[in-house]
Computed example of a mutant assay.
Amino acid sequence: MSRPIFPFHAEDISALARALKSQLDSREAPPGHVELLNMLARGAGWKNFQHFRAQFEAHERLEQPIVQPAPPPPAIDFRRIERLARLFDDAGRLVRWPKKFNQQQTCLWVLWSRIPARRDFAEREINLLLLDQHAFGDYALLRRDMIDSGLMTRTPDGRVYRRIERAPPPDAVALIRVLAGRGSQAA
Results as ranks from 00 to 15, higher is better:
residue 140 A to M: 09
residue 14 S to N: 09
residue 108 L to H: 02
residue 145 D to L: 10
residue 96 R to Q: 14
residue 154 R to N: 10
residue 85 A to W: 02
residue 68 Q to W: 02
residue 131 L to A: 13
residue 171 D to R: 02
residue 57 E to S: 05
residue 13 I to A: 11
residue 39 M to K: 06
residue 103 Q to D: 15
residue 134 H to L: 01
residue 6 F to I: 13
residue 19 A to G: 05
residue 145 D to W: 07
residue 118 R to L: 06
residue 129 L to C: 02
residue 88 F to S: 08
residue 57 E to Q: 13
residue 147 I to H: 14
residue 8 F to P: 05
residue 3 R to T: 03
residue 180 A to K: 06
residue 118 R to D: 14
residue 28 E to P: 00
residue 31 P to F: 05
residue 19 A to R: 13
residue 19 A to S: 15
residue 19 A to F: 00
residue 16 L to R: 13
residue 174 A to D: 12
residue 105 Q to P: 06
residue 70 A to M: 08
residue 90 D to N: 09
residue 84 L to E: 03
residue 133 Q to N: 12
residue 78 F to T: 01
residue 112 W to R: 09
residue 56 F to Q: 10
residue 66 I to D: 06
residue 132 D to C: 00
residue 8 F to I: 13
residue 170 P to D: 14
residue 40 L to S: 04
residue 124 R to D: 13
residue 158 G to A: 04
residue 170 P to E: 12
residue 135 A to T: 11
residue 122 A to N: 09
residue 47 K to W: 05
residue 36 L to S: 12
residue 45 G to A: 06
residue 65 P to F: 05
residue 138 D to N: 15
residue 93 R to P: 05
residue 26 S to V: 02
residue 43 G to N: 09
residue 26 S to Y: 02
residue 104 Q to V: 02
residue 96 R to S: 15
residue 30 P to E: 13
residue 180 A to Q: 08
residue 147 I to Q: 15
